[in-house]
Design a protein around this nucleic acid. Structure first.
Lengths: 110, 110
DNA sequence: ATACTATATTACTTTTTAGTAAGTTATTGC
DNA sequence: GCAATAACTTACTAAAAAGTAATATAGTAT
């Protein structure tokens, strides 16, 4: 990974299809794997695991395994992950406002 | 493009390798094509054109052609593009702070 | 007429990201 | 002893994003 600049650095950590969404849902607190997955209904098994694994590797979330059967696993934001909160909320907010303002203009190229 | 939520919507508009960088450099005002391109030294011809074309299509930047030879083209943020300012600055700032804090810990998995 | 300029395009390949579908684990309840 | 459970994992395919290199344009200066 080549990080020419902070902007790219940040995008490389959270700039994929599912990462921001997963992080966003963890803002309210720890969630069991299955619950978190259901919050992102369209995500596949594979992408879910891959996404949380990468977020964990990058130190943005942590994973706690309870030694029970059937398995129980909880994910939550680390301190580092929590520092993304205002960024995540702003990404969400910008999208919301932008969609709103599209309804007031006739620009709807999307 | 399926926009399940505002967060994804935003990411789809600015979440590629070069878009945030191009937008960021336009925050200080309009730039000639060649100058803008030099601000993003590693970008290829193709990716530069493709990136500005998409940003234009999405109404985030505008393109002004001066009818001279050799050609002169200027890009600048639209009002919609300008509304991304604080978001872009925050993405940059977060990366900066995070890199800084990595130097104080021994977490350097990146 | 040839080279130079800034901006851009095109065909093609490679790399990265995402999706599909089937299989694994280890205990519990029937 | 067989199905049900939650949380994965794996092999494979498909689609999207990015990279490379060659080419186009159209006046101007030599």
């Amino acid at each position: 990974m080549k990080n020419n600049c902070p902007l790219n650095y940040t995008m490389q950590l959270i700039g994929t299809k599912w990462k921001p969404l997963v992080l966003f849902h963890l803002l309210e607190g720890a969630l069991r794997s299955g619950v978190l997955k259901k919050k992102v209904p369209e995500i596949s098994n594979k992408m879910f695991t891959q996404t949380v694994r990468e977020l964990e590797k990058d130190g943005l979330i942590s994973r706690k395994v309870f030694p029970v059967v059937p398995p129980k696993v909880e994910y939550k934001l680390t301190e580092r992950g929590e520092s993304l909160e205002s960024l995540l909320r702003q990404l969400d907010k910008w999208g919301l406002e932008d969609i709103k303002s599209l309804n007031h203009t006739n620009f709807d190229a999307l």
